[in-house]
Design a protein around this nucleic acid. Sequence first.
DNA 1: ATGGCTATGAGACATAGA
Length: 286
Amino acid sequence: MATRAKPSSRGRPSAEPEDGDPGAVKIATFNVNGVNGRLPLLLRWLEEATPDIVCLQELKAPQGKFPLGAIEAAGYRAVWHGQSRWNGVAILSRGSEPIETRRGLPGDDAESDSRYIEAAVKGVLIGCLYLPNGNPAPGPKFERKLDWFRRFTEHAATLLASGAPVILAGDYNTMPTDLDVHRPERWTDDALFRPEVREAFEGLTGQGWTDAVRALHPGERLYTFWDYLRTAWERDAGLRLDHLLLSPNLSGRLAAAEIDRHVRGWDHASDHAPVWISLTGEASSR
DNA sequence: ATGGCTATGAGACATAGA
């Protein structure tokens, strides 16, 4: 391992919730950057972390090439929305069947990328998203990102109005604040950090959603992504792009929120690390 | 630093990622 990498400093292997709450639920999001190429690492992490619910992004696999057999052998059922070569999202549930409630956003058409899937899992509604990157900005790709963000925000409002307990988890391709960027002054014109995108994120959370990781780590510099280029991992030159947003009726159950940084240091890693939260069981509300 | 790396599917490279 290179000199300054600190994969275990904040990133000890994720543990079960330590409060002895039998109803606790652990929910994770992980941009795997290729679910088949990453399968051994994904299975290793699932066995170590034992999340109850997992949102995956960037499957980079068509619908028929999702590795369902290996996922089921690891104890998970799954729904997924594949696409050849790029994008692709999935929701995994340990020991129970996710009940798919939607694939794609309102306003998508037959040509749209596979970037959203939604399912009822273990008493919560899970929206799993992969928001467009948007670079280069400005330009048509950036406009498509903003349009996707706008339609997603409209859908999020509909979900809130339903009164259901909802978690919107995935790769938002958005650094919400300066604390989420290694060198913010270098990113001001980038599609991941431009004011329009940060404002879109603020508009979304302004509906009442809780950015779970930030809520439990205020003021802390946090990253979930480290580029393969320029020894970004070894220099800890990262970005926080992967977020779990909680509806107001879930925020009181938030018990832990962590980034499994050490997974980024494993051989053949994704450029993203898994991010997870745990919710207390409903019976043990505090 | 329009540089560097990694993934996919097609086809002996192109394209996207962030």
